[in-house]
Simulated assay, not measured.
Amino acid sequence: MSIPPAASPHEHIIHLSWAYLYSAALNAVAELGVADRLEGGPKSAATLAEELGVQAQPLYRALRLLATVGVFIEDEGERFALTPAADVLRTNVPGSMRDGVLMVSHETFWRPAGKLATTVRTGETQFAHIFGAPFFEHFARDPSIGPIFHRGMASFSDSENAAIAGSYDFSRFQRVVDVGGGHGGFLIEVLNAAPSARGVLFDAAHVLRDARIAAAGLAERCELVTGDFFKEVPGGDCIILKRILHDWADQAAIDVLRVCRRALTEGGRVIVVDTVIPPGNEPHAGKLLDVLMMVSMPGRERTEEEFRRMLAAADLRLERVIETPAMLSLIEASAA
Protein backbone atom coordinates (compact mmCIF):
# COMPACT_ATOMS: atom_id res chain seq x y z
CA MET A 1 0.00 0.00 0.00
CA SER A 2 1.33 3.44 -0.89
CA ILE A 3 0.36 6.89 0.28
CA PRO A 4 -1.31 8.98 -2.46
CA PRO A 5 1.10 11.35 -4.23
CA ALA A 6 1.14 14.89 -2.91
CA ALA A 7 1.16 18.09 -4.95
CA SER A 8 3.45 20.02 -2.61
CA PRO A 9 6.00 19.45 0.16
CA HIS A 10 3.38 20.54 2.68
CA GLU A 11 0.88 17.95 1.44
CA HIS A 12 3.61 15.32 1.39
CA ILE A 13 4.31 15.88 5.10
CA ILE A 14 0.60 15.87 5.92
CA HIS A 15 0.06 12.56 4.11
CA LEU A 16 2.99 11.01 5.94
CA SER A 17 1.72 12.35 9.27
CA TRP A 18 -1.66 10.66 9.05
CA ALA A 19 -0.52 7.48 7.32
CA TYR A 20 -1.31 5.57 10.53
CA LEU A 21 -5.00 5.92 9.65
CA TYR A 22 -4.53 3.51 6.74
CA SER A 23 -3.11 0.98 9.22
CA ALA A 24 -6.05 1.58 11.55
CA ALA A 25 -8.54 0.99 8.75
CA LEU A 26 -6.71 -2.15 7.63
CA ASN A 27 -6.73 -3.49 11.17
CA ALA A 28 -10.46 -2.86 11.50
CA VAL A 29 -11.50 -4.58 8.26
CA ALA A 30 -9.11 -7.48 8.90
CA GLU A 31 -10.42 -8.00 12.42
CA LEU A 32 -14.03 -7.87 11.22
CA GLY A 33 -13.38 -10.23 8.29
CA VAL A 34 -14.84 -7.87 5.68
CA ALA A 35 -12.92 -9.41 2.77
CA ASP A 36 -14.39 -12.85 3.49
CA ARG A 37 -17.89 -11.37 3.10
CA LEU A 38 -17.10 -10.07 -0.39
CA GLU A 39 -15.93 -13.37 -1.85
CA GLY A 40 -19.24 -13.79 -3.68
CA GLY A 41 -19.33 -10.29 -5.14
CA PRO A 42 -19.87 -6.59 -4.29
CA LYS A 43 -21.95 -5.54 -1.32
CA SER A 44 -23.00 -2.24 0.19
CA ALA A 45 -21.67 -1.09 3.53
CA ALA A 46 -25.20 -1.48 4.91
CA THR A 47 -25.36 -5.14 3.87
CA LEU A 48 -21.89 -5.81 5.22
CA ALA A 49 -22.72 -4.08 8.49
CA GLU A 50 -25.86 -6.16 8.95
CA GLU A 51 -23.93 -9.38 8.32
CA LEU A 52 -21.12 -8.37 10.67
CA GLY A 53 -23.23 -6.79 13.39
CA VAL A 54 -21.53 -3.40 13.15
CA GLN A 55 -22.49 0.17 12.24
CA ALA A 56 -22.90 0.91 8.54
CA GLN A 57 -21.67 4.50 8.35
CA PRO A 58 -18.30 4.00 10.12
CA LEU A 59 -17.71 0.86 8.05
CA TYR A 60 -18.46 2.73 4.84
CA ARG A 61 -16.02 5.49 5.73
CA ALA A 62 -13.21 3.06 6.55
CA LEU A 63 -13.77 1.16 3.29
CA ARG A 64 -13.94 4.41 1.31
CA LEU A 65 -10.52 5.39 2.64
CA LEU A 66 -8.98 2.02 1.79
CA ALA A 67 -10.47 2.18 -1.70
CA THR A 68 -8.31 5.26 -2.37
CA VAL A 69 -5.18 3.10 -2.04
CA GLY A 70 -6.37 0.06 -3.98
CA VAL A 71 -7.70 -1.98 -1.06
CA PHE A 72 -11.34 -2.62 -2.10
CA ILE A 73 -13.08 -0.62 -4.82
CA GLU A 74 -16.36 1.29 -4.62
CA ASP A 75 -18.78 1.27 -7.56
CA GLU A 76 -21.35 3.90 -8.49
CA GLY A 77 -23.97 2.16 -6.36
CA GLU A 78 -21.80 2.56 -3.24
CA ARG A 79 -21.07 -1.15 -3.19
CA PHE A 80 -17.60 -2.43 -2.35
CA ALA A 81 -15.76 -5.23 -4.12
CA LEU A 82 -12.47 -7.05 -3.70
CA THR A 83 -9.31 -5.91 -5.44
CA PRO A 84 -6.14 -8.03 -5.68
CA ALA A 85 -4.87 -6.29 -2.53
CA ALA A 86 -8.15 -6.80 -0.67
CA ASP A 87 -8.30 -10.42 -1.78
CA VAL A 88 -5.24 -11.35 0.30
CA LEU A 89 -7.14 -10.15 3.39
CA ARG A 90 -9.45 -13.15 3.02
CA THR A 91 -8.88 -15.75 5.72
CA ASN A 92 -8.47 -18.94 3.73
CA VAL A 93 -7.00 -17.69 0.46
CA PRO A 94 -3.51 -19.04 -0.31
CA GLY A 95 -0.98 -16.47 0.86
CA SER A 96 -3.50 -14.72 3.11
CA MET A 97 -2.05 -11.65 4.83
CA ARG A 98 -4.93 -11.21 7.28
CA ASP A 99 -2.96 -12.52 10.26
CA GLY A 100 0.06 -10.47 9.22
CA VAL A 101 -2.02 -7.30 9.18
CA LEU A 102 -3.52 -8.11 12.57
CA MET A 103 -0.01 -8.56 13.97
CA VAL A 104 1.71 -5.49 12.54
CA SER A 105 -1.24 -3.20 13.29
CA HIS A 106 -1.69 -4.59 16.80
CA GLU A 107 -1.28 -2.19 19.72
CA THR A 108 1.92 -3.96 20.78
CA PHE A 109 3.54 -2.27 17.80
CA TRP A 110 1.68 1.01 17.33
CA ARG A 111 1.63 2.11 20.97
CA PRO A 112 5.44 1.94 21.34
CA ALA A 113 5.75 3.62 17.93
CA GLY A 114 3.89 6.58 19.39
CA LYS A 115 6.76 6.93 21.88
CA LEU A 116 9.48 7.02 19.22
CA ALA A 117 10.72 10.44 20.35
CA THR A 118 11.34 9.00 23.82
CA THR A 119 13.18 6.06 22.30
CA VAL A 120 15.36 8.46 20.31
CA ARG A 121 16.09 10.46 23.47
CA THR A 122 16.90 7.47 25.67
CA GLY A 123 18.00 4.80 23.22
CA GLU A 124 15.54 2.36 24.81
CA THR A 125 12.25 0.88 23.65
CA GLN A 126 9.27 1.99 25.72
CA PHE A 127 7.54 -1.38 25.33
CA ALA A 128 8.07 -2.56 28.91
CA HIS A 129 6.95 0.81 30.29
CA ILE A 130 3.69 0.51 28.35
CA PHE A 131 2.90 -3.19 28.76
CA GLY A 132 4.73 -4.08 31.96
CA ALA A 133 7.22 -6.55 30.47
CA PRO A 134 9.64 -6.83 27.52
CA PHE A 135 8.22 -7.90 24.16
CA PHE A 136 8.70 -11.67 24.18
CA GLU A 137 7.91 -12.00 27.90
CA HIS A 138 4.66 -10.08 27.32
CA PHE A 139 3.67 -12.35 24.44
CA ALA A 140 4.59 -15.51 26.33
CA ARG A 141 2.60 -14.64 29.46
CA ASP A 142 -0.60 -13.52 27.73
CA PRO A 143 -2.29 -16.46 25.96
CA SER A 144 -4.59 -14.10 24.05
CA ILE A 145 -1.71 -12.19 22.44
CA GLY A 146 0.91 -14.84 21.72
CA PRO A 147 -1.06 -16.51 18.91
CA ILE A 148 -1.49 -13.13 17.16
CA PHE A 149 2.27 -12.82 16.88
CA HIS A 150 2.97 -16.42 15.81
CA ARG A 151 0.12 -16.55 13.28
CA GLY A 152 1.19 -13.15 11.97
CA MET A 153 4.77 -14.27 11.49
CA ALA A 154 3.57 -17.38 9.70
CA SER A 155 1.40 -15.20 7.45
CA PHE A 156 4.36 -13.06 6.45
CA SER A 157 6.57 -16.09 5.95
CA ASP A 158 4.11 -18.05 3.83
CA SER A 159 4.30 -15.44 1.09
CA GLU A 160 8.09 -15.56 0.92
CA ASN A 161 9.26 -19.02 2.02
CA ALA A 162 9.28 -20.79 -1.35
CA ALA A 163 11.09 -17.91 -3.09
CA ILE A 164 13.75 -17.73 -0.38
CA ALA A 165 14.29 -21.49 -0.19
CA GLY A 166 14.62 -21.60 -3.98
CA SER A 167 17.40 -19.00 -3.92
CA TYR A 168 19.93 -21.33 -2.26
CA ASP A 169 21.06 -24.92 -2.82
CA PHE A 170 20.09 -26.73 0.38
CA SER A 171 20.53 -30.16 -1.24
CA ARG A 172 24.18 -30.25 -0.14
CA PHE A 173 23.19 -30.66 3.51
CA GLN A 174 22.23 -33.75 5.49
CA ARG A 175 20.75 -32.24 8.65
CA VAL A 176 19.03 -28.85 8.52
CA VAL A 177 18.20 -27.20 11.84
CA ASP A 178 15.74 -24.30 11.73
CA VAL A 179 16.37 -22.37 14.95
CA GLY A 180 13.31 -20.47 16.14
CA GLY A 181 11.55 -21.88 13.11
CA GLY A 182 8.02 -21.22 14.33
CA HIS A 183 5.39 -23.43 12.77
CA GLY A 184 7.88 -24.80 10.24
CA GLY A 185 6.77 -23.08 7.04
CA PHE A 186 10.31 -22.29 5.85
CA LEU A 187 11.75 -25.65 6.85
CA ILE A 188 9.00 -27.40 4.90
CA GLU A 189 10.06 -25.54 1.75
CA VAL A 190 13.73 -26.34 2.41
CA LEU A 191 13.04 -30.05 2.89
CA ASN A 192 10.89 -30.15 -0.23
CA ALA A 193 13.77 -28.60 -2.16
CA ALA A 194 16.31 -30.99 -0.59
CA PRO A 195 14.61 -34.42 -0.54
CA SER A 196 17.63 -36.25 0.89
CA ALA A 197 18.00 -33.93 3.89
CA ARG A 198 16.55 -34.42 7.33
CA GLY A 199 15.24 -31.53 9.39
CA VAL A 200 14.97 -30.30 12.96
CA LEU A 201 12.38 -27.68 13.87
CA PHE A 202 13.60 -25.99 17.04
CA ASP A 203 11.44 -23.59 19.06
CA ALA A 204 9.57 -23.15 22.32
CA ALA A 205 7.04 -25.81 23.25
CA HIS A 206 4.01 -23.51 23.00
CA VAL A 207 5.04 -22.57 19.44
CA LEU A 208 5.63 -26.13 18.26
CA ARG A 209 2.12 -27.13 19.31
CA ASP A 210 0.97 -25.57 16.03
CA ALA A 211 3.79 -26.97 13.88
CA ARG A 212 2.81 -27.89 10.32
CA ILE A 213 5.44 -30.57 9.75
CA ALA A 214 3.11 -33.57 10.04
CA ALA A 215 0.41 -31.94 7.90
CA ALA A 216 3.04 -31.42 5.20
CA GLY A 217 3.82 -35.15 5.20
CA LEU A 218 7.33 -34.66 6.60
CA ALA A 219 6.97 -36.19 10.07
CA GLU A 220 9.37 -39.04 9.24
CA ARG A 221 12.05 -36.65 7.95
CA CYS A 222 11.80 -33.95 10.58
CA GLU A 223 11.87 -33.93 14.36
CA LEU A 224 10.50 -31.24 16.66
CA VAL A 225 12.82 -30.15 19.45
CA THR A 226 12.08 -27.64 22.19
CA GLY A 227 14.62 -25.43 23.90
CA ASP A 228 16.23 -22.02 24.36
CA PHE A 229 18.51 -20.84 21.55
CA PHE A 230 20.48 -18.71 23.97
CA LYS A 231 21.66 -21.90 25.68
CA GLU A 232 21.83 -24.75 23.17
CA VAL A 233 20.59 -25.79 19.73
CA PRO A 234 20.65 -29.18 18.00
CA GLY A 235 23.69 -29.94 15.89
CA GLY A 236 23.65 -29.99 12.11
CA ASP A 237 25.57 -29.09 8.98
CA CYS A 238 23.06 -26.34 8.15
CA ILE A 239 21.72 -24.11 10.91
CA ILE A 240 19.11 -21.57 9.84
CA LEU A 241 18.25 -18.35 11.66
CA LYS A 242 15.30 -16.80 9.79
CA ARG A 243 14.00 -13.51 11.20
CA ILE A 244 15.72 -14.25 14.53
CA LEU A 245 18.79 -12.05 14.83
CA HIS A 246 16.88 -8.89 13.95
CA ASP A 247 14.86 -9.29 17.16
CA TRP A 248 17.94 -8.74 19.32
CA ALA A 249 20.63 -6.18 20.08
CA ASP A 250 24.12 -6.96 18.81
CA GLN A 251 25.51 -8.72 21.87
CA ALA A 252 22.45 -10.94 22.29
CA ALA A 253 22.55 -11.77 18.56
CA ILE A 254 26.25 -12.64 18.86
CA ASP A 255 25.41 -14.91 21.80
CA VAL A 256 22.89 -16.79 19.62
CA LEU A 257 25.44 -17.07 16.82
CA ARG A 258 28.02 -18.49 19.23
CA VAL A 259 25.56 -21.17 20.32
CA CYS A 260 24.96 -22.01 16.66
CA ARG A 261 28.71 -22.06 15.96
CA ARG A 262 29.19 -24.69 18.68
CA ALA A 263 26.43 -26.82 17.16
CA LEU A 264 27.74 -26.54 13.60
CA THR A 265 29.34 -29.72 12.26
CA GLU A 266 32.56 -29.63 10.24
CA GLY A 267 32.17 -27.99 6.85
CA GLY A 268 28.68 -26.78 7.70
CA ARG A 269 27.02 -23.43 7.20
CA VAL A 270 25.01 -21.01 9.31
CA ILE A 271 22.36 -19.38 7.12
CA VAL A 272 20.99 -16.10 8.45
CA VAL A 273 17.81 -14.97 6.71
CA ASP A 274 17.17 -11.29 7.41
CA THR A 275 16.99 -8.00 5.59
CA VAL A 276 20.30 -6.47 4.57
CA ILE A 277 20.06 -2.69 4.56
CA PRO A 278 21.51 -1.16 1.38
CA PRO A 279 23.26 2.22 1.29
CA GLY A 280 21.60 5.32 -0.17
CA ASN A 281 18.22 7.00 0.06
CA GLU A 282 16.13 4.55 -1.95
CA PRO A 283 13.10 3.01 -0.22
CA HIS A 284 13.72 -0.42 1.27
CA ALA A 285 11.36 -2.50 3.40
CA GLY A 286 14.21 -3.17 5.81
CA LYS A 287 14.39 0.50 6.74
CA LEU A 288 10.75 0.44 7.84
CA LEU A 289 11.23 -2.86 9.64
CA ASP A 290 14.28 -1.45 11.40
CA VAL A 291 12.22 1.29 13.06
CA LEU A 292 9.55 -1.28 13.98
CA MET A 293 12.25 -3.31 15.73
CA MET A 294 13.55 -0.20 17.46
CA VAL A 295 10.25 0.83 19.01
CA SER A 296 9.02 -2.56 20.25
CA MET A 297 12.09 -4.75 20.63
CA PRO A 298 15.79 -4.41 21.38
CA GLY A 299 16.57 -5.53 17.82
CA ARG A 300 17.51 -3.93 14.53
CA GLU A 301 18.04 -4.55 10.83
CA ARG A 302 21.69 -4.54 9.70
CA THR A 303 23.99 -3.76 6.80
CA GLU A 304 26.29 -6.34 5.23
CA GLU A 305 29.28 -4.92 7.10
CA GLU A 306 27.40 -5.06 10.40
CA PHE A 307 26.61 -8.73 9.76
CA ARG A 308 30.26 -9.36 8.89
CA ARG A 309 31.47 -7.88 12.20
CA MET A 310 28.83 -9.68 14.23
CA LEU A 311 29.61 -13.04 12.61
CA ALA A 312 33.33 -12.53 13.20
CA ALA A 313 32.66 -11.95 16.89
CA ALA A 314 31.02 -15.39 16.98
CA ASP A 315 33.97 -17.09 15.23
CA LEU A 316 32.11 -17.25 11.92
CA ARG A 317 33.10 -15.92 8.50
CA LEU A 318 30.67 -14.26 6.10
CA GLU A 319 30.95 -16.15 2.83
CA ARG A 320 28.39 -14.33 0.71
CA VAL A 321 25.10 -12.46 0.72
CA ILE A 322 22.43 -13.78 -1.63
CA GLU A 323 19.52 -11.57 -2.58
CA THR A 324 16.14 -13.25 -2.96
CA PRO A 325 12.86 -12.21 -4.62
CA ALA A 326 11.59 -11.38 -1.12
CA MET A 327 12.67 -8.49 1.12
CA LEU A 328 15.03 -10.86 2.94
CA SER A 329 18.53 -11.94 1.94
CA LEU A 330 20.46 -15.10 2.74
CA ILE A 331 23.70 -14.48 4.65
CA GLU A 332 25.89 -17.59 4.36
CA ALA A 333 28.54 -18.07 7.05
CA SER A 334 31.12 -20.75 7.75
CA ALA A 335 33.36 -21.53 10.69
CA ALA A 336 36.20 -19.00 10.83
Score class of each variant (00 low, 15 high):
residue 33 G to F: 08
residue 80 F to D: 06
residue 186 F to M: 15
residue 55 Q to T: 03
residue 107 E to N: 13
residue 126 Q to T: 11
residue 213 I to A: 12
residue 333 A to W: 01
residue 252 A to M: 02
residue 102 L to I: 05
residue 325 P to H: 04
residue 251 Q to G: 00
residue 200 V to I: 15
residue 326 A to W: 00
residue 232 E to W: 11
residue 260 C to P: 06
residue 115 K to D: 08
residue 150 H to Q: 13
residue 232 E to L: 09
residue 65 L to H: 04
residue 25 A to L: 03
residue 230 F to C: 01
residue 294 M to K: 09
residue 283 P to N: 11
residue 330 L to A: 04
residue 192 N to Q: 14
residue 78 E to L: 15
residue 24 A to H: 12
residue 181 G to C: 12
residue 85 A to G: 02
residue 38 L to R: 01
residue 152 G to R: 07
residue 105 S to N: 15
residue 135 F to G: 01
residue 233 V to A: 12
residue 47 T to A: 15
residue 58 P to I: 01
residue 248 W to P: 00
residue 37 R to M: 09
residue 90 R to D: 01
residue 295 V to S: 07
residue 42 P to H: 07
residue 277 I to N: 09
residue 191 L to E: 03
residue 57 Q to D: 06
residue 75 D to P: 07
residue 48 L to M: 05
residue 236 G to P: 06
residue 129 H to F: 03
residue 193 A to H: 03
residue 7 A to D: 14
residue 302 R to T: 03
residue 130 I to R: 13
residue 232 E to H: 14
residue 115 K to M: 11
residue 24 A to W: 13
residue 186 F to K: 02
residue 319 E to M: 08
residue 49 A to M: 02
residue 195 P to M: 14
residue 24 A to M: 09
residue 59 L to I: 01
residue 180 G to M: 05
residue 226 T to S: 15
residue 261 R to V: 06
residue 159 S to R: 10
residue 12 H to D: 15
residue 91 T to C: 04
residue 167 S to C: 11
residue 336 A to V: 06
residue 153 M to E: 11
residue 256 V to T: 12
residue 143 P to N: 10
residue 194 A to Q: 07
residue 41 G to T: 03
residue 198 R to F: 15
residue 262 R to L: 09
residue 177 V to D: 00
residue 297 M to V: 06
residue 281 N to L: 15
residue 315 D to I: 03
residue 320 R to K: 10
residue 232 E to R: 14
residue 218 L to H: 08
residue 165 A to W: 00
residue 64 R to I: 00
residue 98 R to F: 05
residue 99 D to V: 00
residue 120 V to Q: 10
residue 197 A to F: 07
residue 57 Q to T: 14
residue 206 H to P: 15
residue 108 T to C: 07
residue 64 R to K: 05
residue 330 L to M: 09
residue 127 F to T: 07
residue 130 I to W: 10
residue 247 D to Y: 04
residue 132 G to Q: 06
residue 56 A to Y: 00
residue 141 R to L: 11
residue 134 P to E: 10
residue 198 R to D: 15
residue 96 S to A: 15
residue 204 A to D: 08
residue 86 A to M: 05
residue 54 V to N: 01
residue 24 A to N: 10
residue 80 F to G: 08
residue 332 E to I: 06
residue 154 A to L: 13
residue 258 R to T: 12
residue 306 E to S: 08
residue 275 T to I: 04
residue 114 G to M: 14
residue 82 L to S: 10
residue 3 I to C: 08
residue 317 R to I: 03
residue 93 V to P: 03
residue 92 N to Q: 07
residue 109 F to W: 10
residue 286 G to S: 02
residue 66 L to G: 06
residue 333 A to K: 01
residue 61 R to F: 07
residue 223 E to H: 05
residue 178 D to K: 04
residue 18 W to F: 12
residue 174 Q to V: 07
residue 125 T to H: 11
residue 80 F to S: 11
